[in-house]
C-alpha cells in the first residue's frame, strides 16, 4: 500500500523535471492507474454501484480516456515542443522536492493531531495539491494549466483516499470535477480547430 504512494510521488518528481508534453501525459496516466490500484485495495467494502463508479472514474477516465484524448489533441495540433516554464527544470524539481518534504512534515504533524486517517497519504496529497498549483503558475501554455489541474484533481482524489472509512458521497462528487477537465479539453480542442492558433496553447 505504501509502495503505491511512493510511486505516485516519483511520478510527480518526474513531471516536474521533464519538458515534453507527451511525458507529462504518460505520467498522468500512470498516476490514474496508481489511484485505481489504491482505490480497489482501499474500498473493498463499498457497495457495487459506487465500486463501478470508482473503477470507471480511475481506470476509465483518469487512466485511459483523458490521457488518450490529450494525446490526440497534442498530436493533432503539434504542440509537442517545450513546455515553456518560467523557472528551469532544475529549480522546479528542487521546489517540488521541497514541497514533498513539507508534505512529510505535515504527515508527522497530523499523525499527532487527528486520529483515524492515513498520515502519509494525507501529507503527500496536500503536497501534491501544492505541487500542482506550482505547475500551474510556473507554465505559460494553456494546455499545461489543464495538465496541472488534472494533477490537482489526482491530489484531491488521493486526499479522499487518505481519510479512512468509506465516504461514498465524496466519490460521487469527485466525478463532477472531471466534468471541468472535459470542458477544458473541449475548449482547447474546439478553439484549436477553429482558429488554428496552436501557438498559445
Amino acid at each position: 500500500m505504501e509502495i503505491l504512494i511512493i510511486f505516485f510521488c516519483i511520478t510527480m518528481l518526474i513531471i516536474s523535471a521533464v519538458s515534453r508534453i507527451e511525458e507529462y501525459i504518460k505520467m498522468i496516466a500512470i498516476q490514474g492507474f496508481i489511484l485505481f490500484l489504491m482505490s480497489i485495495i482501499e474500498f473493498r467494502n463499498i457497495d457495487t454501484s459506487h465500486f463501478i463508479i470508482m473503477v470507471l472514474e480511475t481506470l476509465g477516465m483518469k487512466t485511459i480516456i483523458m490521457p488518450m484524448f490529450l494525446m490526440y489533441i497534442v498530436r493533432k495540433n503539434e504542440i509537442t515542443r517545450e513546455l515553456q516554464p518560467y523557472l528551469s527544470n532544475f529549480y522546479s524539481l528542487f521546489i517540488t522536492t521541497m514541497i514533498y518534504v513539507a508534505g512529510l512534515f505535515i504527515s508527522f504533524w497530523v499523525s499527532g493531531v487527528a486520529q483515524d486517517i492515513r498520515p502519509l497519504h494525507f501529507g503527500l496529497s496536500i503536497a501534491t495539491i501544492l505541487a500542482a498549483m506550482f505547475i500551474i503558475v510556473n507554465r505559460k501554455k494553456v494546455i499545461t494549466h489543464v495538465l496541472g489541474y488534472m494533477i490537482f484533481e489526482n491530489g484531491i482524489f488521493l486526499l479522499s483516499l487518505s481519510m479512512a472509512g468509506e465516504m461514498p458521497i465524496i466519490v460521487d462528487l469527485g466525478v463532477m470535477l472531471d466534468l471541468f477537465v472535459g470542458v477544458f479539453l473541449l475548449g482547447i480542442f474546439v478553439n484549436a480547430i477553429h482558429e488554428k492558433e496552436s501557438e498559445n496553447l
Binding site: 486517517i117 498549483m133 484531491i156 481519510m163 465524496i170 475548449g187
Partner: peptide
C-alpha cells in the same frame, strides 16, 4: 478562460473543504 479556470480551482478547494467537513461528521 481565466474565469472558468480560476473558479474551477476555487471550486476544487471547496471540494477539499467538503472532504474535511465530511470527515468530521462521518461522511454519509
Amino acid at each position: 478562460w481565466k474565469y472558468i479556470f480560476i473558479c474551477t480551482i476555487g471550486i476544487s478547494f471547496a471540494f477539499v473543504g467538503i472532504i474535511f467537513i465530511s470527515k468530521g461528521v462521518g461522511g454519509s
